[in-house]
Amino acid sequence: MIALLIRDLRLAMRAGGGFGLGLAFFLIVSTLVPFGVGPEGDILSRIAPGILWVGALLACLLSLDRIFQLDFEDGSLDLLATSPIPLEGIVAIKALAHWLVTGLPLTLAAPFFGALMQLESPGFSWIFVTLLLGTPALSMIGAFGAALTVGLKRGGLLMSLLVLPLYIPTLIFGAEAATRGMAGFSATTPLLMMAGITAGSIALLPFAASAALRVNLR
């Protein structure tokens, strides 16, 4: 299992743009939004949590097809499926690798992009905490979507259509928790709901995703 994690991380680094691409996309989103809505600080700081969350979600989506597609094409997935590691474990490890390469860097960088969006200083920690709790769910849900579409030739667009609706609850609770926290209200409920979605996704979705992979490998 560890070997698979190390391999996936190594592949992401060597393929170039493993960490960089998602972050660059995130930076571009944070740059483009002020051009779109204007430079007024109060508007920007008000919409910052939402923009950062949507940006993180889209950056996550960009790299989802890498989770299984390359391994499917070069035959590794067949070999992994017949290896001693259970397929559920393979799915979970690959989602973890995706999170380490995408979700974690975004979480760490989000406060800096928050500064670009004129976020006030208490907002930094709220963005950080909500993304830290929420991005694992994004990776796991994304792995499920990737498993559904792995056998398809033009799966990318279809996968977005399947995955984005599944992201809605995480996005709502995540952005809501950040907004409330910044405004000084209690954010316990949305935080707990989001943590629950993350925990539930990690516990259950590997089974659904591996079922989908088995169907696609037949």
Partner: peptide, 10 residues
């Protein structure tokens, strides 16, 4: 199989 399951960058 026909495909070797090799990673080009490794």
């Amino acid at each position: 199989a026909h495909a070797d399951g090799l990673k080009a960058t490794l």
